[in-house]
């Protein structure tokens, strides 16, 4: 097993595709970091006039603040992460079939599941390496660029955030691997994965509000007023099917200790009556545990589907 795993991992590291992906992601993050520094510098200079308060978690803002004409790092991760995962996974199995190496591999004295497990683990390792190395670089450059030193809690939050980002990307890779088993051609599998990604990222919210509006119509009538909460809950629930939405909520809570919940009630509450203070890391984590569980479950579910369909697949030239 480790022989295959090592080969897969070195394949990833040596492949042009992965190197391009890596540098693309790194470049985008650095540009976003630069944008964030600019914005923060502006608001900091405003602060000295006494107009805005400085956040205690200044350093985290480097990840979530967008520049004047560029998105923030966290937005980029949420958006490009899936592309990264899909690129790693979409041709895992069908490429082997096309090369004619799968039946030779399957004829070696290994269990068949070793093949797909090694592939997944190698991809996951590559994702973790990428995310953490880029995250580390961004942190380091951010420290140099701004002169801010992250506190222990900030570091912990960043680490958790990077972990979640890795799992998020792995989820998409698992989905792409599922398609790589079921589709005979790499192109079909890539297009299917990208279609799902676009759907979940762009159109899920439209669909969710549509369905929620149908099930619980809101309006001026009494019934409509009563429905508002149910409508909102259903909408959010549907949205949370999408790993993209889950990840963006996780980002918000982890990187922004001001945010105390993702539920409607507490959002309404906090706007007028909450005490202005921050959530501790433990409290923040408590908020997102369901998100973590669901995201993990989605990753496992996609991988399990890929696994099962691979085990059932007939290997033939």
């Amino acid at each position: 097993m480790h022989v295959l795993y090592r080969k897969e991992l070195s394949d990833h590291i040596n492949s042009t595709r992965c190197q391009i992906l890596y540098f693309m992601l790194a470049l985008v993050c650095f540009i976003a970091l630069y944008g964030a520094e600019q914005t923060l510098a502006q608001s900091a200079s405003q602060t000295s006039d006494g107009t805005t308060t400085v956040s205690k978690f200044m350093f985290l803002l480097l990840f979530t603040t967008s520049g004047s004409n560029i998105y923030s790092i966290s937005t980029f991760l949420g958006f490009l992460g899936p592309v990264f995962g899909i690129m790693l996974g979409f041709d895992a199995i069908n490429e082997e079939i096309a090369q004619g190496t799968l039946n030779r591999l399957a004829a070696q004295p290994i269990w068949r599941d070793t093949i797909i497990i090694s592939k997944f683990l190698a991809g996951a390792t590559f994702i973790f390496l990428t995310v953490f190395s880029i995250g580390g670089l961004v942190t380091g450059i951010g420290m140099i660029g701004t002169g801010l030193v992250p506190s222990g809690e900030e570091v912990a939050r960043i680490l958790f955030y990077l972990l979640m980002a890795s799992i998020y990307i792995c989820t998409w890779m698992a989905l792409a691997e599922l398609f790589s088993v079921t589709c005979r051609h790499a192109a079909t599998s890539a297009l299917s994965s990208i279609a799902i990604w676009l759907f979940l990222t762009m159109f899920m919210s439209l669909l969710a509000s549509g369905i929620a509006g149908m099930v619980y119509p809101t309006g001026q009538s009494v019934q409509g007023q009563m429905n508002t909460l149910a409508n909102y809950n259903l909408q959010v629930g549907l949205n949370r099917i999408s790993p993209y939405y889950l990840f963006s909520e996780v980002t918000t809570i982890l990187m922004n200790p001001n945010v105390r919940s993702t539920n409607l009630v507490s959002i309404l509450q906090s706007s007028d009556s909450a005490i202005a203070s921050y959530l501790t890391l433990g409290q923040s984590l408590l908020q997102i545990i369901p998100h973590i569980v669901v995201m993990f479950a989605e990753m496992i579910a996609f991988f399990a589907a890929a696994y099962i369909s691979f085990m059932r697949k007939e290997i033939r030239a």
């Binding site: 394949d11 090369q99 004619g100 190496t101 039946n103 030779r104 070696q108 290994i110 030239a317």
Partner: peptide, 14 residues
């Protein structure tokens, strides 16, 4: 599979 060597038709390599 430990005992048997298999040469598929249209064999492929990485």
């Amino acid at each position: 599979k430990n005992l048997v060597g298999y040469l598929p038709d249209n064999v492929g390599f990485y």
